[in-house]
Amino acid sequence: MHDREAEYAAAADRLHDAWRDPADPDADSRWCTGEIAVHTWDLATALGVGTAGFDPRVAEDGLAFMSGALTPENRDTMFGPEQPAPAGAGPYERLAALAGRVVPTA
């Protein structure tokens, strides 16, 4: 039997390490974490499963980074304008709204 949570955590650590580049002080693995969390919300929403069972730390880390890094000037075509998050929204929903997704109310 596999410990999927431990395997995922180990894979996440390897991903963070791969994004760290001593030659590039601006390289930041949290951008990748934010991207993964946004697309996790996209997929969970499309499948109708929600994000309640997902580790909130992934979205919180991505949200903390993208709140400062995702500006109106650098949204380009990948992110729409920030949308309001419903009252009581969790971190995946707040991150999705920040990334321009329309987050339905519960």
Rank of each mutant, 00 (worst) to 15 (best):
R4F: 08
A6N: 02
A9Y: 06
A9N: 11
A10C: 08
A11C: 05
A11N: 13
A12R: 06
D17H: 11
D17S: 14
A18D: 14
R20F: 03
D21M: 02
A23Q: 04
A23H: 02
A23L: 04
D24K: 00
P25C: 02
D26L: 05
A27F: 06
D28Q: 05
S29I: 00
R30G: 06
W31M: 04
G34V: 14
E35Q: 14
A37Q: 11
A37C: 06
H39M: 15
H39S: 14
H39Q: 14
T40Y: 09
L43N: 14
L43E: 15
T45I: 01
L47K: 14
L47Y: 14
G48C: 08
V49R: 15
T51L: 01
A52W: 03
G53M: 10
G53P: 00
F54Q: 08
P56F: 07
P56E: 11
V58T: 13
D61K: 00
D61L: 02
A64M: 01
M66A: 03
S67C: 01
A69D: 07
L70D: 04
T71Q: 07
P72W: 07
E73L: 15
D76F: 04
M78P: 00
E82R: 15
E82Y: 07
E82M: 05
Q83Y: 04
Q83S: 09
A85L: 06
A85C: 07
P86L: 04
A89K: 13
G90T: 09
P91M: 04
P91L: 04
P91A: 12
R94N: 09
A96P: 06
A99F: 05
R101Q: 02
R101F: 00
R101W: 01
V102P: 15
V102K: 15
V103H: 02
T105W: 11
A106K: 12
